[in-house]
């Protein structure tokens, strides 16, 4: 299927008419997220995030490689996203759609370029050995707002991941298995989250976390990435109707408020997972990281 079926005229009119009266299809208020559910896998570094029917799975993998010659002290961190026919039948394998390019660009900008992960901490031997950390995000189900779901999944997986402990003796690098030494968490400096706004009524009305049908009849999109301290990491407005500066400021305020809620949801899910893994309360003794 080369492209997605468009909304019918009736459906479009229905969605827009309802929005004029501030009513959304699923009964949410204009600035409400769908319920975010996070499930962690058995192994460290997998997070399955569902928001309504949208579902994204993030998985972190680490391997050792040589650093870029001009960045000898930095590890390599990449984020890859994949839209397969699993998410929606019009996506093809091996052919990148605009949606996929847009998604990976914004994720890269929000997480990697905002230095959420300190790449210096991934350096093992300067100039010759660094960790290569790959965050693969698989979109399993597409029902709008892939970006928020993917971003939450990436952050949840990164903070859930444990990297093998290493030591260097006489220039020789040893990587320890989970049985020898407890693996350590990544050095995450902050948790950025994306909040996307779909634009309606010529830039006057903004709705948070648009579902697929709302996304299909929106007039544009504004994405604000922020962390819980209220720092703005990225703002993206690509195409669509012009947006008034004051409306945009309103978006930023809403985004910061939403990000705090998302941060809390991820933190709670992580805590719950940690207590489930901490059988017999031995985790504290096994920790190998330095208390800072």
């Amino acid at each position: 299927m080369p492209r997605e079926a468009e909304l019918s005229v009736n459906e479009r009119a229905f969605v827009l008419e309802a929005l004029k009266e501030d009513v959304r299809l699923d009964g949410r208020s204009l600035d409400a997220f769908r319920d975010v559910r996070i499930a962690f896998g058995d192994e460290y570094g997998t997070a399955d995030v569902s928001m309504g029917k949208t579902r994204a799975l993030a998985r972190i993998s680490a391997s050792i490689t040589a650093p870029n010659p001009d960045r000898k002290f930095d590890g390599i961190f990449t984020i890859t996203t994949e839209l397969s026919p699993m998410a929606a039948p019009h996506f093809e394998i091996g052919r990148q759609t605009d949606a996929e390019a847009h998604l990976s660009l914004l994720l890269d900008r929000s997480i990697r370029r905002s230095s959420a992960l300190s790449t210096e901490s991934l350096c093992l031997v300067a100039g010759s050995k660094v960790w290569l950390l790959v965050c693969t995000i698989h979109i399993l189900d597409h029902d709008g707002d892939l970006l928020s779901a993917a971003c939450i999944a990436a952050i949840a997986a990164l903070s859930h991941f444990r990297i093998p402990d290493t030591s260097i003796h006489g220039g020789e690098l040893t990587v320890y298995s989970a049985q020898e030494r407890n693996p350590i968490p990544l050095a995450l400096l902050h948790w950025p989250f994306c909040v996307s706004f779909a634009v309606f009524e010529g830039g006057e009305k903004m709705i948070v976390d648009a579902a697929l049908r709302e996304e299909q009849c929106s007039e544009g999109e504004v994405v604000v990435t922020a962390n819980k301290s209220g720092e703005i990491c990225a703002i993206s407005k690509q195409g669509g109707v012009p947006t008034d500066a004051l409306v945009l400021l309103g978006c930023v305020d809403t985004a910061v408020e939403k990000v705090r809620v998302l941060d809390e949801i991820v933190r709670k899910a992580l805590d719950l997972d940690a207590t489930q893994r901490d059988v017999g309360g031995l985790m504290a003794e096994l920790r190998a990281e330095n208390a800072r």
Binding site: Y44, L57, S61, S63, S84, M86, I93, V175
Partner: peptide, 20 residues
């Protein structure tokens, strides 16, 4: 008939460093 298979999890070895 389009079949997409996504491998979600693979078994891990206890004795080897993860993913190496």
């Amino acid at each position: 008939i389009q079949i997409t298979l996504q491998i979600i999890a693979t078994p891990e070895s206890d004795h080897q460093p993860a993913r190496l």
